[in-house]
Design a protein around this nucleic acid. Structure first.
Length: 584
RNA sequence: GCCUCUGUAGCUCAGUCGGUAGAGUACGACCAUGGUAAGGUUGGGGUCACCGGUUCAAGUCCGGUCGGAGGCUCCA
């Protein structure tokens, strides 16, 4: 962000924070008994948390909005006053949340309040606009009421939060509201239903995904590509069980540290079994099956491994947060000498995968050693440096999260920005200094000594379910040709041309193009409309002219029209789009 | 898990003051045989999420249960 953008953002934040005070003033007018918590500016707007004598309703939002407009019209000045701690405590003695905030302020911090005329006074560091005439009464909108714990702590009282969006001018507000509408249209749950891609069934288990034929078709496309590229990049595939005896999870430490994230035990022959929340212990079992020489390393073992984790019911969200999902997992097991090249390769591979799916705006986050950790510092340092070097060699923008690594190793996370500017964390490359010790993994080095290998977990897409959700939202359901579950729909102009249409369909299918035909008794117009709504890349229309010339007329999803194209040309054109992973 | 909102046909939704259920769409049948975003007619489809209560009578009111949505990270 440059200096100009920075300044603009600060101005917006000042305006939004001032708006939050206006909203608090309006709520105070509506309910004089209101207790106030905090009201910061956030991305695209602001919120304020209140403790109120009754529940807010959507009608209240409209009322509050009107009251806010009145306050803005009154041109109330924002005036700062500096108080002593005692004065502040006295002033807010009826406001328990403010008292708590004051008491927690450091000794040497200035305590200030802001008065907004006589409508509202708040403990606040500021800054604020000079007076409410600087705020645009048409530039904000109250969005929603939500419950929020005081200080985000579920043991503290639940407050009522009002979210609002605010921009400097009405035009920007309108643009943002349109953006929100577009988000709704792209919501993967909505598109998934519209295009019949997947479903979830509360009666059969919340957070568990059912892939319908079209969604499954896309998943197969994704997985086939994934497998092919993994073999090309020197990986081997493994398959491992979905459950394991408690011995495995005791050894790995999951039962000590991750039990609340696991599905509960199943008892068989008086022994506890657990569904796997992670694949690593199984891959390690394969390693432990024999002796290994430094000459055999590195191993790169990949698995589309389905894992089950307990997520609290309130956090489940479509495909993005589920209880059963398939990690595109792999473990790299290597010698210290091989570590740098393995890390560089996996990062390069990861970028290749993400870019193949159309994500070009990628940034990295490097997380380093936390206070509580296992493994020697030298290994941490070596591993962290190899991660850093790999990022820098790729010329990626990155941020360092000091002390943000897991207790068992440093990591890189990659985030992509989608077409709507939202960030998603997908790839992760993570060292593990814990499991090799716990499972006593060794290899024989060239000096005949038994040594500990490095183990690196990595997932490129993250999970197939979540990645699929991100893909749907990124493309809004209008997928590039290679991913589309139906790439071509053949539409005969009338029943008379069904035979030719079926012949065209067979020719395309013989070329591995995903094709279907619409032989319903709808009129052609309706068929076009349906295909267009399904966002099928190519509509191949055939009638008398086409039949006579062994040709097709193509209507592209974009509206582009390619009439009278020889069938063979159409096939090559479509195949080229598929091969190049392009949009139609 | 907790807070707010919410649950009516496969889907999107209407249903007033409590009087036993409605539209569009999808699906089936028939007619129409068509040239680039909805042809016409007609039919079937509901334990109004579930359990209980109030009432002569409950989709509607009350209580509970189970789902779904938004939120619970942004610090005066």
């Amino acid at each position: 962000m440059n200096a100009k953008e920075q300044k603009k953002l600060e101005k917006l934040q000042k305006m939004r924070h001032s708006m939050a005070h206006v909203m608090a003033g309006a709520v105070l007018k509506l309910m004089p008994e209101a207790k106030f918590a905090i009201g910061p500016a956030i991305d695209n707007g602001f919120y304020y948390d209140f403790d109120l004598p009754r529940k807010l309703t959507n009608e209240d939002l409209a009322t509050i909005e009107e009251l806010m407009k009145e306050i803005i019209k009154e041109n109330l000045p924002f005036e700062k006053e500096v108080l002593s701690r005692a004065e502040a405590l006295e002033m807010f003695k009826d406001q328990p949340y403010k008292v708590e905030l004051i008491q927690e302020l450091p000794e040497d911090e200035e305590i200030s309040i802001f008065r907004m005329g006589d409508a509202f006074v708040d403990l606040c560091r500021g800054p604020h606009v000079e007076d409410t005439s600087r705020l645009n009464a048409q530039g904000f909108k109250l969005l929603s009421i939500a419950g929020a714990y005081w200080r985000g702590d579920e043991k503290r009282p639940m407050l009522q939060r009002i979210y609002a969006t605010a921009f400097g001018d009405p035009k920007a507000l309108k643009a943002h509201l349109e953006f929100l509408e577009e988000m709704e249209k792209r919501d993967h749950r909505r598109v998934g239903k519209e295009q019949d891609l997947f479903s979830l069934h509360e009666e059969a288990g919340p957070g568990l995904v059912y892939w319908h034929p079209k969604g499954a078709r896309m998943r197969v496309t994704i997985e086939d590509f994934w497998r092919k590229e993994h073999y090309k990049n020197g990986y081997d595939m493994v398959f491992t069980p979905h459950v394991g005896k408690s011995w495995l999870w005791e050894t790995s430490g999951h039962l000590d540290f991750y039990k609340e994230g696991m599905y509960p035990n199943m008892v068989m022959d008086d022994v506890n079994y657990y569904a796997k929340p992670m694949n690593c212990p199984f891959h390690i079992m394969i390693y432990k099956n024999g002796k290994h020489s430094y000459r055999d390393l590195p191993y790169r073992w990949a698995e589309l491994g389905t894992v089950y984790r307990y997520e609290r019911s309130g956090t489940l969200h479509g495909l993005l947060r589920v209880r059963g999902f398939t990690q595109d997992d792999a473990h790299l097991i290597c010698t210290p000498d091989q570590m740098q090249s393995e890390i560089s390769e996996v990062l390069r591979f990861s970028l290749f995968m993400l870019r193949s799916f159309g994500f070009s705006d990628i940034s990295a986050y490097l997380s380093t050693m936390p206070e509580k950790s296992v493994g020697e510092k030298e290994r941490w340092d070596a591993a962290t440096e190899s991660l850093r070097k790999a990022i820098e060699d790729e010329g990626l923008e990155y941020k360092v999260d000091e002390g943000g690594g897991a207790f068992y190793g440093p990591k890189i996370d990659l985030k992509v920005k989608d077409t709507m500017g939202r960030e998603w964390q997908l790839s992760t490359v993570q060292f593990d200094f814990n499991l090799p010790d716990r499972f006593d993994m060794t290899f024989t080095d060239n000096d005949g000594q038994e040594k500990r290998p490095y183990v690196i977990h990595r997932a490129l897409l993250g999970s197939i379910e979540r990645f699929f959700g991100v893909l749907i939202e990124n493309y809004g359901g209008a997928f590039p040709v290679w991913l589309a579950p139906t790439q071509v729909r053949v539409i005969p102009v009338s029943e008379k041309f069904e035979d030719y249409a079926k012949k065209v369909e067979r020719s395309l299918r013989a070329e591995d193009i995903l094709v279907d035909g619409d032989y319903s008794d709808d009129r052609m117009n309706a068929k076009i409309r349906n295909a267009q709504n399904e966002k099928i890349p190519y509509m191949v229309v055939v009638g008398e002219k086409e039949m006579n010339d062994s040709a097709v007329s193509i209507r592209v999803r974009t509206g582009e029209q390619l009439n009278g194209m020889p069938l063979d040309d159409a096939i090559s054109m479509i195949n080229e789009k598929i091969a190049k992973k392009e949009m139609p």
